[in-house]
Design a protein around this nucleic acid. Sequence first.
DNA 1: TCCTACATTGGACTTTGTCTAAGTCAAGAT
DNA 2: ATCTTGACTTAGACAAAGTCCAATGTAGGA
Lengths: 139, 139
Amino acid sequence: MSDLLERLRSRGWRLTAQRRVVAEVLDGDHVHYTADEVHAKAALLLPEISRATVYNTLGELVSLGEVLEVSTDGRAKRYDPNAHHAHQHLVCSRCGTIRDVHPAGDLLAGLPAEERFGFRLSAVEVTYRGLCPECATAG
Amino acid sequence: MSDLLERLRSRGWRLTAQRRVVAEVLDGDHVHYTADEVHAKAALLLPEISRATVYNTLGELVSLGEVLEVSTDGRAKRYDPNAHHAHQHLVCSRCGTIRDVHPAGDLLAGLPAEERFGFRLSAVEVTYRGLCPECATAG
DNA sequence: TCCTACATTGGACTTTGTCTAAGTCAAGAT
DNA sequence: ATCTTGACTTAGACAAAGTCCAATGTAGGA
């Protein structure tokens, strides 16, 4: 995410402390925070930041294609900054840990023509589920 | 879902009018209703049925493995009665229509060992996205 | 028929997210 | 350096989706 702010500014984004802090929170690998988690972490750096601003900023980052929305549990959406590298998700059924993974082959090709019902396919999302090493040994 | 009620009774389910009605609503192909939709349709058959009962009953059906929870849009969960036939979902990006589909091959095998991070895989969920024929021609 | 454990109910409550009116400020213009 | 202005932020009200609970009702066995 290092050059993210520059990229956004060149697209006409006004650079505010709030947006800087949200971008900073989203920096890293295997980051999949909920909006509330982003808000909590952002508030450590900038205590006055409001929930609405976090929601706004996340929404803008998604629209701009810089961040992906992931909903692996039907609860709160999670935000994945790794949008520039196609990937899927591996989720622990017990503790909820999420890892980015890279399946082999062309996933779209897996759906035969007669199973497409005339749809024009554009994307595919895959969620692998299982037990992570810690949860598997813990019983 | 015809023999569903018998199957459930043999598992110790108490058979009430409310549960019968919820099961009836979930009967059919390509059914993916939200809890609220199930409640609305159930209320046509049994006006006094409460939202809490619909949520309870759906939750029980999911625990018993008779119905699957699907969340394709990050909003309300949807309930898919087609739980005894493995399948995936094809969703229209514009109108939200959902179809059950059957991809070819072993989906779990698509994730290489070095991408499994030591997880013991047990399931995979795939959502194909694209435009349905109606939305594609509508522009 | 009666009993009772299980099921249902309505409403309060929680979580997650959206909206708005009023105030604030980044960045270009002067 | 200061001004100006439209974009940004804020707090809090609101909405949607779902959970919880105490009181009431009832399916099905005795």
